[in-house]
Amino acid sequence: MECLVVDDSAVVRKIARRILEKHGFRVREAADGAAALEALRAGMPGCILLDRNMPVMDGLAFLRALRGIPGGDRPRVIMCTTETAQEKILEGLEAGADEYVMKPFDEAILIDKLALVGALPGAAE
């Protein structure tokens, strides 16, 4: 299973990569929504860990764009953001997110959420 980590923080990308690789994911990274759309040209990942507030193109704009392109319904998208107000979460779900991680997060939470969307390697690849 491949996971695309989209976050403008190099620290968050590094933490996510470490957790994901430990659980058998292949990881690609992008620092904003536009870079993430570009990364999709190399193929659709099985899942996407998506920050919300980013420069250039934010997470919601990326998500709406993703869900509009052919094959863009396939990746399981987990939003991973400090925007934790209930209405912000609903906004993410309406834009097409499958799950939602409220920062700060830990390994247990991230793995639980990946399991919930059926994206753990070996589960439903």
């Binding site: 934790t84 997060f105 939470i109 919930l116």
Partner: peptide, 19 residues
């Protein structure tokens, strides 16, 4: 926030909880 994220699908959180 930590407690509601373990094992609880976010749609159930939205539906059955208030912040």
């Amino acid at each position: 926030q930590f407690e509601v994220q373990r094992g609880l699908p976010v749609r159930m959180l939205m539906k059955h909880f208030t912040q």
